[in-house]
Design a protein around this nucleic acid. Sequence first.
DNA 1: TCAAAAGTGTTAGATTTACACCCATGA
DNA 2: TCATGGGTGTAAATCTAACACTTTTGA
Lengths: 225, 225
Amino acid sequence: MTQFYIEEQKILLSVDCIIFGFEQNKLKVLIGKRKMDPGRGEWSLYGGFVRNDESIEDAANRTLFELTGMRNMYMRQVGAFGSVNRDPGERVVSVAYYALINVADYNEKLQAEHAVEWVDIAEVPQMFSDHNEMICKARQLMQQKIKTEPISFQLLPSLFTLTQLQRLYEAVNGEEVDKRNFRKRIKDMDFIEKTELIDKQSSKRGAYLYRFNKKMYNEEKNFKL
Amino acid sequence: MTQFYIEEQKILLSVDCIIFGFEQNKLKVLIGKRKMDPGRGEWSLYGGFVRNDESIEDAANRTLFELTGMRNMYMRQVGAFGSVNRDPGERVVSVAYYALINVADYNEKLQAEHAVEWVDIAEVPQMFSDHNEMICKARQLMQQKIKTEPISFQLLPSLFTLTQLQRLYEAVNGEEVDKRNFRKRIKDMDFIEKTELIDKQSSKRGAYLYRFNKKMYNEEKNFKL
DNA sequence: TCAAAAGTGTTAGATTTACACCCATGA
DNA sequence: TCATGGGTGTAAATCTAACACTTTTGA
């Protein structure tokens, strides 16, 4: 193969994953202590290097799979982070992705193996490199997205109560909403289906379980929260 | 210096600039025919490679300066584009940025030198590599941004008429708006200052010229269009 | 004198917000 | 029997959208 761009400098390229989960009415991110030098022991996102024969997105999916054992997670690019000295070891440009996961689906064994934990988004410690900035940007993007697309269901079990859904919105947006107004908006969205099933976990009386009907959503697409 | 990431593969990294301008009531992008192999002669964005000793953002600013002779342009990242075969020559990952320019400020000599031209966003031809996708994404981001931040003034002369401003919004959003409702919203924003100057270019009667008062905006920040 | 763009308010409809009580159940 | 979370409707306020005529002036 002919070499076209012979004069140019090549650069290390990595991906970093901001994995959001919802647990105990809080929005959380999955982070761990860095296991390599430089920066060993610092809080860090989970990441990996991009290989020459895979797209950045593939690298991100591979990294997510390594960490969670899951494929086809909801994942969106946050952006490229490219300060010269962002990594103390060597020049590394990183492309951040955020992903959404239902915490209950996450394999505890893998979690233990990678020594990562769910940390409340409001209590994220100081992190390695520019990872705080990445988390912040990811959260902003996710907050925007959740207003216009039904991504909340990625963070919940397939059956959920309206109170769970509401608490999720409150956690993501950082402010409480009125229960009746919230439920009115849900009623207008036919693709959020009421089932006949009752959840008895969270209350004595029990609450109806709902599910997201993806097919119906694809026909209607009138999402607004 | 110690090498930390010895095993990893390095990749060519470039930046591509989507430069938006506003001319004849149309939103336009600045593009030219590619001057190097592979892809010589195809329509292309203006870009450049990222050097090892500069941030991606610096590379983008340098590239914009090369093309326009201007510094401190409004510029935002669109994202990283990283398919393996996006560049037919060699594996190149590119980070796209969009920038806003007042067309009248753009040096014609530089434009001729680089052989770039303003093309209506609605009539962008098929382009090299994934540049159509980059433009599309850039436009989406810009459309979102213009709703909540006063970036429109980057595309206009420092003095402008309300009709110009309205036409700009219409061009960006791709739909017409009601003149009276538009002007009502403008009146609520004190940082869009009416001057005593009259523009006689666009009408016999003449129209008041307005200016964006940045200091006043920074105090109020209640932008909404 | 007329064509072309500038400028200006009102009203109906839609959307959003605020708000309080009864229900069902397990402990 | 009572504490806990589940479930429900209405009215006021705000915001949005639709709409038409007069003014100025250069050609």
